[in-house]
């Protein structure tokens, strides 16, 4: 499969595809991060996660429209406002969903899966009714357009870099929150032993709600970032959901590092193979390898050591 390429061409191909893979990686990290903290904390799979992401994306779309019409002078900075708004809106909706639905279903994770799938259908159709079935895109501020020319063959688009920076800073932020804050300590206590955590006075229901809201909020930021590199349609979220689940499960639930490593591995494998094989075969191979590894090592790459 490498026939006909010189070694320097191969290097550039790998660099370019590697970078293309990095923007996929950023989307994976952003989506998987929210999913992973919800799954790790509560054992709940949120099938509507992709739709929360799209909610963030539509929020960004509306914000950019607002800035364009009313505050054109500040247009360069609209993205940051949009990001905060996306986080707040998604987190608020997440908290509401948790309160209405999820908290009644903690003992039945499989049912949560179905209920959140129902939610995702409703949200998708709502987007379709409100924003139309066509994909929408935002206008990038000027400073985000263009690309760095690294060598003759390799160039890196700025918006991709920017999204990657967001992904990494969110990852660092989540790490700090989970391992360096009082809230994180409580979350980890609940994860490790719920009855004991309750016994020492941790409000586990409150922690659950906050975590679910946080996860959804991060999905919102993911959606805001997503608009920078692609257009948004009502069902864009669903396109990523299976990959994201696999990222989370493959990385090992409850392990943030594992999530990042597996997001990196899956996105790189997929985008590198895409150059040499057809896109669909690259995806099939990647998913097959991941599923195969999961069958051999069901706890994922980096799992908490628990006795079973």
């Amino acid at each position: 499969m490498f026939d006909g390429y010189t070694s320097s061409e191969l290097m550039s191909i790998f660099a370019m595809q590697g970078f293309a893979g990095l923007s996929l990686f950023s989307v994976f990290v952003l989506m998987a991060m929210g999913l992973a903290i919800i799954f790790g904390q509560m054992g709940v799979i949120n099938m509507a996660h992709g739709e929360f992401m799209i909610l963030g994306a539509y929020t960004t779309y509306l914000t950019s429209g607002f800035f364009q019409s009313y505050l054109p002078s500040l247009f360069g900075g609209y993205f940051f406002v949009a990001m905060i708004l996306a986080f707040l809106i998604c987190a608020a909706l997440g908290a509401l969903v948790e309160w209405l639905m999820i908290r009644r279903l903690y003992h039945r994770p499989l049912d949560t899966l179905l209920a959140t799938w129902g939610l995702s259908l409703i949200m998708q159709q709502a987007y379709r009714s409100i924003f139309g079935a066509r994909e929408v895109g935002v206008e990038l501020p000027e400073w985000m357009m263009g690309a760095f020319q690294v060598t003759d063959l390799v160039e890196l688009p700025i918006n991709g870099l920017f999204v990657m920076i967001i992904a990494l800073s969110i990852a660092v932020g989540v790490y700090l929150l989970m391992y360096r804050s009082g809230y994180g300590k409580k979350v980890r206590a609940v994860v490790q032993n719920r009855p004991m955590a309750e016994a020492v006075g941790i409000n586990s229901a409150g922690i659950d709600r906050a975590t679910f809201a946080l996860g959804c909020g991060i999905a919102g930021i993911a959606g805001a970032a997503f608009t920078m590199i692609g257009s948004t349609g009502p069902s864009s979220g669903q396109a990523y959901i299976v990959d994201t689940f696999l990222v989370v499960v493959f990385g090992g639930a409850q392990s943030l590092i594992g999530t990042i490593v597996s997001a990196f591995g899956i996105s790189q494998a997929q985008s590198t193979m895409e150059f040499f094989l057809s896109g669909s075969m690259a995806k099939v191979l990647t998913l097959l390898v991941v599923v195969g590894i999961l069958m051999l090592r069901p706890e994922g790459l980096m799992a908490l050591k628990v006795r079973r």
């Binding site: 209920a115 129902g118 939610l119 259908l121 159709q125």
Partner: peptide, 9 residues
């Protein structure tokens, strides 16, 4: 969607 949620809840 309502059916999914309703049946489960």
């Amino acid at each position: 969607g309502a059916l999914f949620i309703g049946v489960v809840l």
